[in-house]
C-alpha cells in the first residue's frame, strides 16, 4: 500500500536498515494487511448474504406471492398477502402512536430540555434503544394479550410503537439542534410566540431530517419478529379490510411469516421464507440507502 511506504522516503533518518526499522516496517504491513482482511471479510459477508438470499428467494416471487394466502401444505403456490396486510396495519398503528410521542420527546430535548430532568430523559431514551425488543413484547403480552386471551394487531402495533419512540426522538433532537439559532431569533423578533416558532419555523426547517428519522425507525420495526410473536401471533387467512378488527384478530406480519415458514416441515415453504426474506431485505437496505443519500452521508466527513 502506498500509504505505508510514503513515510519512509521523507524520514530524517539515514537509509533505514537494521532490526528496529525492519520491525517497524513489518508492523505497518501487518496492520494494513490484517485490517484490510477484516474489513474485506465484513463486506464480503454482506454481499454473499444478500446474493444468497436473492438467489434462493427470487424464483418464488411472482404476482401470486403478493396476492395469495400462505399455502397450507406442500402444494406450493400461495403467497404472503396476509403478512403484507398485517405488517401494513401494524406499522400504521405503530406510526400513529410512536411518531408523535417520539417527536415530542425530541422537541423537548432539543428546545426546552435543560437540567437534571432532560439528562434523565436523554439517558432513558438512549438506554431504551439498546434494550432487547422482546422485553417490550413481553410487556404488552402480559398487560393486554394474556388477560384478554386474544392476540391482536393492536397489541402488535403498540409493541412496535414503543420500539419506535427512542429512534424517532433521537433523530428529531439531532436535526432540531442543527437548525441555526438565528432562525429562531428571527421568528421571535417578528413577534412569533414559542409554539409558533417551533411549529412553523424550526420543525419545518428540519422536516427532511425528521422524515429520515421516521423512515429509519419504520425500517427497523418492519423487521421485528420477537415482540410480534408475543402480541399478534400470525394468521394464515386473509381478512378483507372492511372486516378487519384490530382489537381481537391475530394479524400476520412479514418477519412473522418468515419465522413460521422456517418452522414448516415443507421445503416449498422454507424456500418461500427466503422469498419473503428477500422482500424484507430489499425494503430495509433500500430504505437505509435512501436515508444515507438524503442526508449526504457519502461525503467524506472531515477530521
Amino acid at each position: 500500500m502506498s500509504v505505508a511506504t510514503g513515510e519512509q522516503s521523507n524520514s530524517l533518518f539515514k537509509p533505514e536498515r537494521g532490526l528496529f526499522h525492519a520491525r517497524r516496517r513489518i508492523a505497518v504491513y501487518l496492520s494494513v494487511g490484517l485490517t484490510t482482511i477484516f474489513a474485506g471479510a465484513a463486506i464480503l459477508f454482506l454481499s454473499y448474504f444478500v446474493f444468497y438470499v436473492a438467489r434462493e428467494g427470487i424464483q418464488y416471487i411472482n404476482l401470486d406471492f403478493f396476492t395469495q394466502e400462505p399455502p397450507l401444505s406442500n402444494s406450493g403456490g400461495g403467497g404472503i398477502v396476509t403478512a403484507l396486510e398485517g405488517s401494513l396495519v401494524m406499522l400504521v398503528i405503530a406510526s400513529i402512536i410512536g411518531i408523535p410521542l417520539g417527536m415530542a420527546v425530541g422537541i423537548y430535548l432539543a428546545e426546552f430540555g435543560r437540567g437534571r430532568l432532560a439528562d434523565v430523559v436523554r439517558f432513558l431514551v438512549d438506554t431504551l434503544t439498546g434494550l432487547p425488543t422482546i422485553v417490550f413484547g413481553l410487556f404488552i403480552w402480559v398487560l393486554i394479550v394474556a388477560p384478554t386471551r386474544t392476540f391482536s394487531g393492536l397489541a402488535g402495533g403498540l409493541a412496535l410503537s414503543i420500539i419506535m419512540v427512542p429512534t424517532v426522538a433521537r433523530a428529531t433532537e439531532e436535526v432540531l439542534r442543527l437548525v441555526p439559532g438565528s432562525l429562531r431569533e428571527a421568528s421571535i423578533a417578528l413577534g412569533g410566540t414559542e409554539s409558533r416558532t417551533i411549529l412553523r419555523v424550526v420543525v419545518p426547517a428540519a422536516r427532511s431530517g425528521i422524515i429520515t428519522g421516521m423512515l429509519l425507525a419504520l425500517a427497523r420495526v418492519a423487521g421485528e419478529t420477537a415482540p410480534l410473536l408475543m402480541t399478534s401471533l400470525g394468521n394464515n387467512f386473509f381478512i378483507p379490510v372492511d372486516q378487519l378488527n384490530i382489537t381481537n384478530t391475530p394479524l400476520d406480519a412479514v418477519p412473522l411469516r418468515i419465522f413460521i415458514f422456517t418452522l414448516s416441515p415443507f421445503p416449498v415453504q422454507q424456500h418461500q421464507a427466503f422469498a419473503a426474506a428477500l422482500i424484507l431485505l430489499v425494503l430495509v437496505i433500500v430504505t437505509s440507502l435512501l436515508v444515507r443519500l438524503a442526508t449526504g452521508g457519502f461525503k467524506e466527513r472531515g477530521r
Binding site: 454482506l46 420477537a226 422456517t262 422454507q270 426474506a277 437505509s288 467524506e300 466527513r301
Partner: peptide, 26 residues
C-alpha cells in the same frame, strides 16, 4: 471510506429473522 462504512452498517440493518433463517438452513 463512506461507502464501505455504509456497507458495514448495512449488516446491522438485516432483520434478525433473516439472519436466523440463513443460520438455520445454511
Amino acid at each position: 471510506r463512506a461507502p464501505l462504512a455504509f456497507l458495514v452498517d448495512a449488516i446491522a440493518a438485516i432483520p434478525s429473522v433473516v439472519i436466523g433463517l440463513w443460520g438455520l438452513f445454511v
